[in-house]
Design a protein around this nucleic acid. Structure first.
Lengths: 112, 112
DNA sequence: TTGTCGTACTACGTCTGTCGTACTATGTCT
DNA sequence: AGACATAGTACGACAGACGTAGTACGACAA
């Protein structure tokens, strides 16, 4: 029924991506499936949102890209992978603190 | 130290305004002070954000404006007040549900 | 064999909400 | 006289999400 609106999710997309990459390097399609899985199917990131996030995050040096062969047979097929940087880990830690603050503040305006 | 970034707060500004107006009708400056107070000084809404939210929210019929004399002496000074509408109350209820869902989802990506 | 589905993206343009900057105007306090 | 609180309005820039569309390949079913 209820869904997470884009005005809300935009505050957390980078954090979710970093949270996935913190475990191990990965690539677009796999990351989107992880986000769906971890959220229990309650949040599905849009493709365009995800790939434009990669561009921004690489520019901010929160992630780094590299290519890997998809097929070890060596047919030249490659896939773009991303890994989190130290700066990205630091940013993720700050976002976790920000989340604690946000929870604290927003709860005061919410009726349950 | 940590602050709530605008990418995060944008998901909640309308909700905070409605939460204040749910108690009683009010006007811009007073609402901004209420938000600061209720948040324990941890969130201060920008003037331009607040007033542009009023325009949007009135268009969406979540709030209604009316004018009141500031000075009962009758010197003609007026102030624009806003009150929450039924549609606004309904929207607020939905936002509270969305918050519960958001908390549930985001916590899975956060390390404490 | 033709079409759909899953995988794995890229490109482009639009829209919304926030923000910086600046300006107006009044009253009170120092 | 100047700063500060009150109570706003106007304008343009910018970032991030989104809709739409297109590419390309392999598997699998009708």
């Amino acid at each position: 029924m209820v869904e997470i609106s884009s005005d809300v999710s935009r505050g957390y997309n980078d954090t979710m991506i970093l949270s996935v990459l913190k475990k191990e390097p990965s690539y677009g399609y796999e990351i989107s499936k992880q986000i769906k899985l971890i959220s229990g199917g309650k949040y599905i990131i849009k493709e365009t949102t995800l790939y434009s996030a990669f561009t921004r995050m690489e520019k901010n040096q929160h992630i780094e890209s590299f290519t890997l062969d998809t097929d070890p047979g060596g047919n030249g097929k490659k896939r773009t992978y991303y890994r989190i940087t130290d700066k990205g880990r630091e940013y993720y830690r700050e976002k976790c603190e920000e989340w604690a603050l946000t929870k604290d503040v927003i709860e005061k305006f919410i009726e349950q």
